[in-house]
Structure formats: structure tokens, C-alpha cells
Computed example of a mutant assay.
Amino acid sequence: MTLRTRILVLISALVVLAGVATASVLHASARADRKNQTQPGGPRVTAGTVALTTGSGSRMIFRNMAWGPHRDELTTVPASNPSGPRTASKVKCLRFYAAAGTGVCLQSVHGPVQDTYRAVILDTRLRQTARYDVPGIPSRARVSPSGRYAAWTAFVGGDSYAGTNFSTRAAIVDTRTGKLTPSLEAFRVVKDGRTYHAADVNFWGVTFAADDRTFYATLATKGRTYLVRGDLLARTLTTLHTNVECPSLSPDGTRVAYKKRVPGLSKDAPWHLYVLDLRTMRETPLAESRSVDDQVVWRDDRTIVYALPGDYGADLYTVPSDGTGKPRRISTAAVSPAYVN
């Protein structure tokens, strides 16, 4: 047998072995998917129609984390039955929020070398109306109560709020005009009554008031975090309270729920949930003892909804906003909820 023939035989054998290995992997993956789709106790998910307005009662829309063909898709359930059967939309999001028939969906775009990210504005039927590049890994998303403004936060350095070596970009877009503010660093910061400048400022976790002008967010600088009140017309950010991260404004606009760093907790799980009365600046610790790394959602003026790690990636929990009661899991394999009517 000549050298050339030996080489050809070797190449043919390698091709056959590669084909067998690929087929084995695909077969195992398909078996795993079938198993996960029928796993006892797992949520039942079927394809259907999902809309951001219903006209027939409140619904919860969220990113489905259950394994199977609809993983990462936006799915919906009746708000009154959050653990019930799910209807999937085919629209995939890493982070999502919606209000007044407008949605913002933060997505990954898989590339040959690395993934990129984008923010997609959705209409009530989940059709894309605009798209914006996101400069890093998506983290938070919000829409104003009127649907006019959308905001998102991305990590552009580091990958966790728990550490200190990270950088973020918080953007706001006017969904009517398309005008984008790519970073809140363009706003003037007012701290202790004076204009504040620092090279290390970071912003994240935007939440909107109902007046289409006021919003709240987190400012980080010099190793501390602050709740800031933003003014979209004056383009200012004014500090209000210390040790506030990922604020979420109550529907009545009087309180902010947020995560607060508590001394003595692990550096990897340092937070406790609190609610701040914006008139009195009085803080109320909530009854959830676990560390929550999420921008919580208000189900109504009395109830907070948030995600914690679960078997599928994340589960949704609820707790009263007045510090009473106890946490209750309402949905498995779910994250990034929004309530629509």
C-alpha cells in the first residue's frame, strides 16, 4: 500500500468516526429534549398567539426557561394561574418587559466569532418596530407605564453586580420618535445639591414614573450606590438615598422596591429586598431572607415578584411589599415577567 493510499484510508476513517460521533451527540440531545419536554412536574408549553394587550383580564408574560422547543421564548399565562399551561410566542428574549402594548426584548445574536446583543422594540402583536445595538451582555429592561419610553442596561465589563469590577451602560429610547440616549452618563448628576463629576460613574436599573418625564435608577461611584431621580426633559439625575440597586417603582408611584447590600452577608450573595417610601425615606425590609439579584416587578401596589435560581435556571416568587407574610413560589422555569391587561 502506497503512502498516498494510506493517507486516504486514514482520512476516510476519521470522517466516518466524526460522523458517528456527531450522530451520537444529536441523538442524545434529541432524547434529552424529549425527556425534558415530558418530565413529570414540568410546565406544559404549547405554541400559540401571545399579545401585549388582552382585553380579557390580566396575564403574565415572561421568558420561558423550561427545556424543550420553546425554551427562551416569551410565553404567557393568566395572571391568576401563573403555574398553569403556557402559550409560547416563538419570540426569544434574554430580558423582557412590557407596558401599554409596547415591549422591549433584549436578544443575543449568535456570530461566527462571538455573540452580539440588541434591544428590539415590539408592538402589541410582538412585531419588531425598532432595533438598537446593545454594547454588552443584557441585564435589565423596562418600559414606561404609557409605553412611550423603553430602557435597558448591559454589562460592558465584568458580569455580576455582586463584584466591584464591572461597568454598565443604561440606555433610554423614545419609542415614538426613535430618539436614543445610549448612556445616562450624558445626563448631569446632582449630588448633595451640586453638580457631580467622576470618571467611575455607572448607571443601571431604570424604572419609570407615569408622567413620561420622571424615572429612577441606580448610580454607582466611589464604591457606593445611590438611588437617583431622573428628569428626561432637564436631563438631570439627582441623588436621593444611599445603598439602592435595581429600583422598581410601585404602580402608585409612592415607593421603590430594590435590593440593598447588607453587611455580614456573603460577597457573592450580598443583598436583601427592601421597599423605600419616597415621601418619608423610610425603609422596610421584606420577608425574603435569600439574596435576590433581580430588578423586581410590582404585581400590584401590595405584591412584589422576583426571580431566584431554580432547576431550569430561574423560578418566580412573590412576597408582600409591606414586610409581612412569607415568600411563595408562583412559577417554575420562568424569569423576566411583565403583567398586561
Results as ranks from 00 to 15, higher is better:
G103M: 00
G103C: 01
G103P: 01
G103L: 03
V104K: 14
C105H: 03
Q107W: 05
Q107C: 01
S108N: 12
V109D: 03
V109F: 00
H110W: 04
H110N: 09
G111A: 03
P112K: 08
P112E: 02
V113T: 05
V113L: 01
D115W: 08
Y117E: 02
Y117G: 11
A119S: 02
A119R: 05
A119Q: 06
V120D: 02
V120N: 06
I121D: 00
I121F: 01
L122R: 00
L122Y: 00
L122K: 04
L122S: 01
T124D: 01
R127L: 02
R127T: 06
R127A: 01
Q128E: 00
T129Q: 10
T129K: 07
T129V: 07
R131A: 01
Y132T: 04
Y132S: 03
V134Q: 10
V134A: 15
G136F: 11
G136Y: 04
I137E: 08
S139K: 07
R140W: 01
R140G: 00
A141I: 00
R142E: 09
V143D: 12
S144C: 07
S144A: 07
S144G: 06
P145M: 11
P145T: 09
P145H: 01
P145D: 10
P145S: 05
P145G: 04
P145Q: 04
S146P: 05
S146T: 13
S146M: 10
Y149T: 04
Y149G: 10
A150M: 05
A151G: 11
A151T: 01
A151V: 07
W152R: 12
W152M: 12
W152E: 08
F155H: 03
V156F: 08
V156D: 06
G157H: 11
G157A: 13
D159G: 14
D159R: 05
S160W: 09
S160I: 09
A162S: 06
G163C: 04
T164W: 12
N165Y: 13
N165P: 06
N165I: 14
F166K: 12
F166L: 09
S167P: 03
S167R: 08
S167M: 08
T168R: 09
T168E: 09
R169A: 10
A170D: 07
A171K: 02
I172L: 04
D174G: 05
D174I: 11
T175A: 14
T175V: 15
R176W: 14
R176I: 12
R176F: 14
T177I: 04
G178W: 10
K179E: 14
T181N: 14
T181C: 13
P182L: 06
P182R: 15
P182Y: 13
P182F: 05
L184S: 13
L184V: 07
L184G: 11
E185D: 15
A186E: 09
A186T: 15
A186Y: 10
A186L: 08
A186G: 12
F187A: 04
F187Q: 07
V189G: 08
V189H: 15
V189W: 12
V190E: 06
K191Y: 15
K191H: 15
D192K: 15
G193E: 15
R194L: 15
R194S: 14
R194P: 07
R194I: 15
